[in-house]
């Protein structure tokens, strides 16, 4: 509970933050992933650059697409009418992160930079085809969420790069849901399933599915998507999708002492069905 020594400085703008950061430093947003790690001395950055006061990084805009600033808190996202309308699954996922105190401080940018595989928002971002917008000394770039999450606690961010926002396509004409099986100890996801369904009457014309918690990163599940697309989301289609999703995540499984990989893989199938039912 006693972190190593570090320097602290606050940045007033993105440019200033990028100028201040060095290889042994970290950006500090809500701090609810970073500080616990530092207190356990699992990480010891030499300096922190506080980006909380950079106005351009915060807030939600809904102009066609949905753009959410990196330091927007989980609570703001969960409570946003725009997010609820344009990507209800993301509002739901952000509303299930940690507890209210965590949601009031924790930010979407900090969350995805940390890339905890059992956290909720990444799974929705991958399912819904979000884009992560990044600024570095060399300029700006954007990376699809599926490519952004590389592995356990590993992202496509390069040293010194800062997430500025995430963008999501308008999903207000889809039926989407995020369903989570929380770990009884941590309330992180044992498995979290995000689905985004486009429907034509009773027929599903397109399905986007991602699984987190059970995996080392949020994984897009093409097999499950194929099983759902074109179906009437009947029991047979759901069973087929549940079987497929277990194969989709087979190469990425994660587990812990109490909830091993094999169990989580099976539960991905159960919760995929529950997510589809919740969405449709």
């Amino acid at each position: 509970m006693w972190p190593n020594k570090f320097e602290y400085a606050r940045a007033g703008s993105v440019d200033e933050a990028l100028a201040m950061i060095s290889d042994d430093g970290k950006f500090l947003a809500g701090g609810h992933s970073l500080l616990p790690v530092m207190k356990l001395r699992l990480d010891a950055p030499a300096h922190l650059v506080d980006i909380n006061r950079i106005e351009s990084l915060s807030g939600i805009s809904a102009n066609g697409d949905l753009t959410i600033g990196a330091t927007t808190t989980h609570a703001e996202i969960a409570g946003s009418a725009a997010v609820q309308s344009m990507c209800a699954a993301l509002a739901s996922a952000c509303g299930q992160v940690g507890d209210q105190a965590v949601r009031n401080f924790g930010t979407i940018g900090g969350n995805i930079a940390h890339a905890d595989p059992a956290s909720d928002p990444p799974t929705v971002l991958v399912a819904c085809g979000a884009t992560v917008n990044i600024q570095g000394a060399a300029g700006a770039r954007s990376v699809g969420a599926e490519d952004f999450f590389v592995d356990l606690f590993e992202t496509a961010l390069d040293d010194g790069e800062l997430i500025t926002s995430v963008s999501l396509p308008n999903c207000s004409d889809c039926q989407c849901a995020y369903v989570k099986f929380p770990h009884p100890a941590s309330r992180y996801a044992i498995v979290g399933v995000a689905v985004c369904l486009k429907m034509d009457g009773d027929t599903c014309t397109q399905a986007d599915v991602a699984v987190g918690g059970a995996t080392v990163k949020a994984v897009k599940c093409a097999g499950a998507e194929a099983a759902l697309a074109g179906s009437a989301l009947d029991d047979a289609a759901l069973e087929a999708a549940a079987a497929a999703v277990k194969a989709d995540i087979a190469d990425w499984l994660a587990g812990d002492i109490a909830y091993p990989e094999s169990y989580r893989q099976q539960m991905a199938g159960v919760f995929l069905k529950r997510a589809v039912r919740a969405a449709s």
């Binding site: 356990l40 009884p184 100890a185 941590s186 309330r187 992180y188 812990d256 002492i257 109490a258």
Partner: peptide, 20 residues
């Protein structure tokens, strides 16, 4: 839970499940 070599695997409340 300890590992066979005696490491406490439930060393924080992330893994040791307190009732809620």
């Amino acid at each position: 839970i300890y590992s066979d070599d005696g490491q406490l695997l439930t060393g924080t409340m992330q893994d040791y499940c307190m009732p809620k």
